[in-house]
Amino acid sequence: MTEQSPFLTLNNGVEMPALGLGVYQSTPEETVPAVETALKDGYRLIDTAAAYGNEKEVGEGIRRSGVARDDIFVTTKLWLTDYGYDSALNAFDISLAKLGLDYLDLYLLHWPAPAVLDATVDSYRAAEKLLADGRVRAIGVCNHGPGHLANLVERTSVVPAVNQVELHPFFTQQEVRDFDTRHDVITQSWSPIGGVNVYSAADPHAAKNPLRHRTIVDIADGHGKTPAQIVLRWHIQHGLSPIPKSVKAHRIAENFDVFDFVLPPDEVAAIDALDTGVRGGPDPDEVGPDTFS
């Protein structure tokens, strides 16, 4: 197994590991060993959020791993109910205290919340202050389409370094990726192996799981890899930053073991062709402070 992920250079020169561990839906009890295991396996990017309810456990997992803080890239996110300039600064302090860290590597706004754009802009300006004060190394957003991102960039000073969006073979977000690339924004993939299509499905039996698609299964068989490894390798070769979630030690190791092979162009194109244009998660245009209450 390769011991280190390649790095992506953000638009402010900071280097971010391309592949990380996500902890969405990881219970507090599961999070500590998952983070500790991932870091011992070679992961150096851990992605959490205030809304996940496990920032404290992420910090504990980091401390138990024995890996030096400066070698780990830690991301958390501002939740919708804390949008606003002063409330965002206060929420950041709370997140940092829960994590038990002195600084954050990346701070993201969790949703664009277009219905309350002024609050979104004020929150991002608070993130800009945190960046200027050296309390974070980079700032960015989640779930922003081109229109959301254009509106934000027009009203603020710092172009987001990262845009974290739902992205997997059945929802490839080419328009978002193209816009991000033109503006020197790294696209980061949540639910990179398509789990959102399973855990958010109204009818689980009708769920569309990319890992069971014949195209991906056949490619995996040809490389002696698992379907998940094929999909994660697809992300890496597109210059994306996948953050797969797992709390199982063998899956955490498996998801990181994707740097010893290369997909040829025809296989990359075959996976690209699986796009349905249908998202599995919420529509960012419809998400606001009261959506999940």
Rank of each mutant, 00 (worst) to 15 (best):
V217R: 13
T187D: 08
S189A: 15
F179R: 07
V185S: 10
N209A: 12
Q173Y: 00
H238E: 07
R182N: 15
R233H: 08
H223K: 13
D180W: 10
I186F: 08
P192K: 03
D221Q: 15
T172I: 07
K225G: 05
A206S: 14
L167S: 14
S246A: 04
K248A: 09
Y199M: 11
F170D: 07
P244A: 01
I186C: 10
I193V: 12
H168E: 12
D178S: 14
Q188C: 10
T215D: 03
Q164R: 06
S189K: 05
S191I: 09
T215E: 13
I219G: 01
E166V: 02
I230Q: 06
L211K: 03
T181H: 14
W190C: 03
L240F: 07
N209F: 09
S191Y: 11
P227V: 01
Q237L: 06
K225F: 03
Q173E: 11
I230P: 04
V247H: 03
S246D: 05
D221S: 14
H223E: 02
D180V: 01
P227M: 12
W234D: 02
A201E: 11
V217I: 11
A201K: 08
V247A: 12
K208L: 14
S246E: 02
G195V: 02
K245N: 11
T172C: 08
